[in-house]
Design a protein around this nucleic acid. Sequence first.
DNA 1: GCACATAGTATCAAAAAGGATACTGTCATG
DNA 2: CATGACAGTATCCTTTTTGATACTATGTGC
Lengths: 134, 134
Amino acid sequence: MAKVRHSRFDCTPGCSVEAAIGLIDGKWKAIILWHLLAGTLRFNEIRRQVQNCTPRMLTNQLRELEDDGLITRKVYAQVPPKVEYSLSELGLSMAPILRALKAWGDANIGLYGKPLGHDPREPQPGGSAQRGSL
Amino acid sequence: MAKVRHSRFDCTPGCSVEAAIGLIDGKWKAIILWHLLAGTLRFNEIRRQVQNCTPRMLTNQLRELEDDGLITRKVYAQVPPKVEYSLSELGLSMAPILRALKAWGDANIGLYGKPLGHDPREPQPGGSAQRGSL
DNA sequence: GCACATAGTATCAAAAAGGATACTGTCATG
DNA sequence: CATGACAGTATCCTTTTTGATACTATGTGC
């Protein structure tokens, strides 16, 4: 999403909206947060939940989330290593957003990711959506 | 955010979350939707609200939103041209998400985009967040 | 005649994000 | 001894996204 993260928000009102998604974007962050909402998880536990996210990506996303103060990383001085990730207070405060996303997705997304219902390109009889007719 | 939009969601539960942000990501979409929540807007009206979004970008984002069925584009056969954008029913159903984002942002984002409060890198006395000590 | 407003496009280039693959060290298990 | 689990790293490369800039057509007002 290209550097919205931590830019200055001079914009008018919607800035807070922009700021919020800025922290939550990035292909895996929202899902990671969502899973952490259910409780603390270890690195590979997350990996299993979010399959086909490479370890590199996972590390990246987790680091950014941590840098933004949304999650907490706890390292146990053991071997084999044990690292636990959990939501910080700030991250927890995102619960309403996450739940809203989940609710909307459950209600509106088909198996193939396209929103369900009324395809806007379906030729509508009373046609009011032309393109290129300009 | 690289092609989450309209990919297949084989993933476990959080997919709907991923799907939802997939439609709403892209640096301007959320803010555009937010502004449209207040009512129909014309192209340049949006531009003024979302300043420093180039017309190219704005067109892109609007087209994607339209393709995803979140907004509606209405062209008036006039000159100079007049095009109105408004939320579709589906877009309107995103209101809870948008409002949650706004609320969170208002509550947690400082002037500089960094989340407020407890900086995780501030050396905490009871230190439990070390990195590189692995 | 000139500038402005409308709603965009076109083209080029840069930057950012993401993917693939291989590799680290240590311990426990078979 | 070989293998797997743990939590990552390192490198390289491709794709995606975004930005900058200039340009289109037409009508109105000065």
